[in-house]
Design a protein around this nucleic acid. Sequence first.
RNA 1: GGCCCGUUCGUCUAUCGGUUAGGACACCAGGUUUUCAACCUGGGAAGAGGGGUUCGACUCCCCUACGGGCUGCCA
Length: 467
Amino acid sequence: MSQQIVTRFAPSPTGYLHIGGARTALFNWLYARGRGGKFLLRIEDTDRERSTPEATAAILQGLRWLGLDWDGEAVSQFARKDRHAEVAHQMLTRGTAYKCFSTPEEIAAFRADQEAKGASYAVFQSPWRDADPATHPDAPYAIRMKAPRTGETVIEDAVQGRVTFRNDQLDDMIVLRSDGTPTYMLAVVVDDHDMGVTHVIRGDDHLNNAARQTMVYQAMGWKIPVWAHIPLIHGPDGKKLSKRHGATAVGDYQAQGYPAAGMRNYLTRLGWAHGDAELFNSAQAMEMFDLSGIGRSPARLDFKKLESTCGWHIARGEDAALLQEVEGYLAAAGRPALTGAQRDLLSRAMYCVKDRAKTFPELLEKAHFALISRPIVADEAAAKALDTVSRGILSELTPRLRNASWTKEALEPILNEMAAAHGIGFGKLAAPLRTALAGRTATPSVFDMMLVIGRDETILRLEDAAA
RNA sequence: GGCCCGUUCGUCUAUCGGUUAGGACACCAGGUUUUCAACCUGGGAAGAGGGGUUCGACUCCCCUACGGGCUGCCA
């Protein structure tokens, strides 16, 4: 009898949504959504010093942009602190935890001492572990997990395989601080249990933690979830991702004009594979995604491949959706919004620009001709195509266009005849036309441009150029 | 220092003891073309090093090197 799958993404709101975190969220989302399960969101804000509402907002915003929708309301871990404390005290009653009166100073001194002795240092062993309650001072205390000192704790990880930890390497971690607040190690377990999380898919920086958390599950007699620790993402140089690699926040990617669908596809393939599948939409990804396809070594970010993947998605995007995403990009990048007329023109131009752009700035550049208004200012290279001879040809062409029917089929012979009449190839005619219509040398086909801006505008631009 | 994880073309990866080690991006060369792209064809390009196990290892084991993670009253 299989239960419903429940996954979660549990970021700590201490900064923007990191690209690595976004991938973790994506994997959880794909796994749950592909199996009719639930994908939950929990904000791990128990660190009151570093957590900010701005960071929480940025994380939600990043997830929304990527289209990773979660079920129900985002849970604040901090809001559940009473429940965490309750569990800590249950552990006390069960004898799987104990009150520790060692002060942070004493612990720091212990560590300093160990370090001074050089070489390897032992895990901190609290003197209060087996103390008689009668000897307990009337002082603040932390609650520590009474972890087994011998034997091993085994993690069955869906990605890493079976990983064994010696218990004497693990200390009695604090589950409830002396100020009564829970630590991460306790909070995650309690929340994951209470929220019914069945699969914990997270960065492998938590692999060691899984052993300690397993002890908490065992201490409480709770069912241990399926672990899946995925390798972190590295920068193009193979080093840990950091600011100097450029974009690390997902917001940066939106501001650089990458489409969300392309990001999802690229990020899915980063560290995960399903045979030769490279390009796919989210529905297909959900179909294929599984934990066994996740690799065990860290993957590097490759912006060229990201771009290529994004180009594929833009080319296949639906015009209206692309237009909407372009507007989101403009806002994120702090660029001026489209006017109503530009929206309209861009929408009409979409068919001939979307299959040649990898990002939205590129798409906008290709659509430049549709977004500008007269007089068209030619850039240096384009201006060269407009000499006396070509101006003459343009002015000769204008009247022919007035009565032509405005389709590529009708326009093509007119332009071809014009070129033939002057003994030049079509390319020689297209160049000045391009300058007149767009002021650029790199544009969509001249026919497409004429079709998009329409007869009147075409004629006006040609007249301007011929003048 | 200790513990844990990893290492196939430049990059992402397939392979789950027997393959001419496959695909994708990137790169190079052609083609197509009205420009830029897109697109099509072809090409070069890989099992970190050393020991084992085996009839046979990229695949299994050990060692080394390198990379990463954890080692907090952070998450």
